[in-house]
Design a protein around this nucleic acid. Structure first.
Length: 316
DNA sequence: GAGGGGAGCGCG
DNA sequence: AAAGCGCGCTCCCCTC
């Protein structure tokens, strides 16, 4: 609501700015320093394993899975997470893992090829949807394609896409139609997933872990639609959760051997954060990358980006 | 003073 | 009438 008004007026913009800054202060700047344990000089978060419906971990006391990164002011908080003397922080991120899982699950030829050929999948999608060479894709087209890609994972409608991109509903509808023309397997997969959920009352990840959806047969259309969106999303979000957990187990087993001076500190859904002695950075990087990439074998490669730095922001 | 519930905002 | 998935924390209002 304010978001829209802020495009035209100063007051709503200032209100949003104030809220954002006070959020940073109350939740992070004021709080994190007093959560440092005196015995270790560190913050010790808890990771819950049986909270999120899709099988993700959740982090509490404090939540270290929502440390700011999207704005320059927020990133200053992230810079406060530093490696101890002689060590580096290393972040290892899966690249577009949920979209890759969608390609795997749908077996859609176009999406599979977008991933096998392109280094930038949103750009590749833009080229397909807007029927233009990859090199001619504009920033605007890429932005639209990215919104479509993310929207699909969440079960978004043309209405939601229109709002997201600030375009008319008809235009958004055209984008969606062109997308499904190019990637018909994705539409089929989504239709089949809704039917499966309706008939069985659950959906499952690649590895067979289930999410039950009691709302899928509700007479209330709003509840039913929400359950359908959850049914679309859960196999992707849940399979991604399964994969990174497998990688964590493999990495833990490997690090326990003790050849490397390194520890796994955090998991942030598609990212693992390590602290590693400087001399072991290269070995850790290679070992982590290999284990994350081979935690599952899909129809598309799983790519991992690695970053190293003295603080968590630098490691990205 | 404790705790519920909603709004709002931080992240993937 | 609503319209985008999954979380946790702070603030505020309210009740007990």
């Amino acid at each position: 609501m304010l978001q829209e008004l802020a495009e035209k007026y100063d007051l709503p913009r200032l209100i949003l700015e104030q809220r954002s800054i006070s959020k940073l202060k109350s939740t992070y700047t004021d709080k994190l320093p007093i959560q440092v344990k005196s015995t270790s000089g560190r913050i010790h978060s808890s990771f819950q394993q049986a909270i999120a419906a899709t099988g993700r971990l959740s982090s509490t006391d404090p939540n270290l899975q929502n440390i700011p990164i999207r704005t320059p002011e927020g990133r200053r908080v992230r810079k406060a997470f530093i490696a101890k003397e002689g060590f580096k922080l290393m972040a290892a991120d899966y690249s577009q893992v949920e979209l890759r899982i969608m390609a795997h699950l749908s077996r859609d030829a176009g999406l599979l090829s977008a991933f096998s050929s392109a280094e930038d999948v949103h750009k590749a999608t833009a080229a397909d949807v807007f029927n233009t060479p990859v090199d001619s894709v504009t920033a605007e087209q890429r932005r639209s394609a990215k919104a479509i890609n993310f929207g699909l994972i969440y079960g978004m409608s043309a209405f939601g896409l229109a709002k997201q991109l600030n375009i008319s509903r008809g235009e958004a509808q055209q984008y969606v139609e062109r997308y499904f023309e190019r990637y018909p397997g994705v539409r089929t997969y989504m239709d089949e997933t809704r039917v499966f959920a309706d008939e069985n009352g659950f959906v499952e990840t690649i590895f067979g872990r289930r999410l039950y959806l009691p709302g899928i047969t509700a007479s209330n259309a709003m509840i039913r639609k929400a359950a359908q969106r959850a049914a679309i999303n859960a196999p992707m979000q849940g399979s991604a959760a399964d994969i990174i957990k497998q990688a964590m187990i493999d990495i833990d087993r490997w690090l326990r051997i003790g050849d490397l001076d390194a520890s796994m500190l955090l998991q942030v859904h598609d990212e693992l954060v390590f602290e590693v002695r400087e001399k072991d950075v290269e070995l850790l990087s290679e070992g982590v990358k290999f284990r994350m990439m081979t935690a599952a074998s899909l129809e598309v490669p799983l790519l991992v980006d690695i970053g190293v730095g003295n603080n968590w922001d630098q490691a990205h």
